[in-house]
Structure formats: structure tokens, C-alpha cells
């Protein structure tokens, strides 16, 4: 029942869950993936909970979440120990200096990817800009920005509904 770790990407999920195990249909997986993005939390974990719950109910959801977190959990603890042991070495520090630059590059890539999917019109551009300024210039906690965004989303729909009624 274990899903294993590292199934971050849709094609892998598709291969494993739909083709090999026949646990889900293709459209179900896509629906879970879409839903996994629209509820809070980490997408891969969300998809695994949806899948596990659909197959076996609560116990399935538990098994799936354990399966997707355990390998990573163990790997991280081992690595964290190792890094702690060797971090005083000069060449390890040099490697992490480089990794720091690489991480910035990954963040740039993630922002570009998110941008392509989310900034679709003038309004979403304004939201992006507001969120960026609040966070970068005014040090607003991310939670505050997210809650504001949720309220704005609700408010927009509420206004639309009022307009439709008139």
C-alpha cells in the first residue's frame, strides 16, 4: 500500500497509480492533482491522501501519507546528521556556498513557473505586486498576505453575485 517517496511529478504518479497498480483512472488522478493544488499543504502529500482515502478510507489515507513521508524523513535525518558532522570542513563550506547560489536559481525558476500559471490578467498582476511589496518592503508575515488574498477572493465572488442579481 505504500506509495514511496519522491513522487512529486504528475507523470510518475500516472505511471505508478494508473498504469501499474490500476488504483485510479486517469481522470481521477488529474482531478486529485487539481484538488491537491486547491487545498492548502504540500501537493504530493495531498494527492497521496486523496488516493489513499478513496481506496481504503481513513486507514488508506494514513498509509499513503506515511508511505510518502517516511523515506524522505529517514533520508533527511541521515543527511542532516552527516552535514552536521562535516560542516566545519572548508571544501564542504565551499560546496554549500555554491548550493546557496543554486537555490536562488531554483527560486527564480519556481517564481517563473508560478507566474506563468497564475498571473493571467491585470488583476492578478496587481495581486502579485501587492503581495510582493507587502512581503519584501513591509515585512508582512506570509500568513497575513494569504489571509488577505482569501478575503479578496471571497469578496470578488460576492460582488459578482450581487451584480448578477441586479
Amino acid at each position: 500500500m505504500l506509495l514511496g517517496g519522491g513522487y512529486v511529478i504528475l507523470p510518475i504518479l500516472q505511471n505508478e497509480l494508473v498504469e501499474k497498480k490500476n488504483w485510479l483512472s486517469d481522470s481521477e488522478l488529474h482531478e486529485f492533482y487539481a484538488l491537491g493544488q486547491s487545498v492548502p499543504g504540500i501537493i504530493a502529500a495531498n494527492v497521496s491522501v486523496f488516493t489513499g482515502y478513496k481506496l481504503l478510507g481513513l486507514s488508506g489515507a494514513f498509509a499513503a501519507i506515511a508511505g510518502i513521508t517516511m523515506p524522505a524523513f529517514l533520508a533527511i535525518i541521515v543527511i542532516a546528521r552527516l552535514v552536521g558532522e562535516v560542516s566545519y570542513l572548508k571544501f564542504i563550506q565551499s560546496i554549500f556556498w555554491g548550493v546557496g547560489v543554486g537555490v536562488l536559481m531554483l527560486i527564480i525558476m519556481a517564481v517563473r513557473e508560478l507566474w506563468a500559471r497564475s498571473v493571467v490578467d491585470r488583476f492578478s498582476y496587481v495581486i502579485f505586486f501587492l503581495s510582493f511589496v507587502l512581503s519584501a518592503c513591509f515585512q508582512a508575515p506570509p500568513t497575513v498576505v494569504i489571509i488577505l488574498a482569501i478575503f479578496i477572493g471571497i469578496w470578488i465572488q460576492y460582488q459578482k453575485r450581487l451584480e448578477n442579481r441586479e
Binding site: 517564481v111 497564475s118 495581486i127 503581495s131 511589496v133 488574498a149 479578496i152 477572493g153 470578488i156
Partner: peptide, 9 residues
């Protein structure tokens, strides 16, 4: 609304 906000963050 959340998507561009998360992108800005």
C-alpha cells in the same frame, strides 16, 4: 487570487 499572491511571496 491566492496563486499570484503566493507567487509574490
Amino acid at each position: 487570487v491566492l496563486k499570484p499572491a503566493a507567487c509574490g511571496l
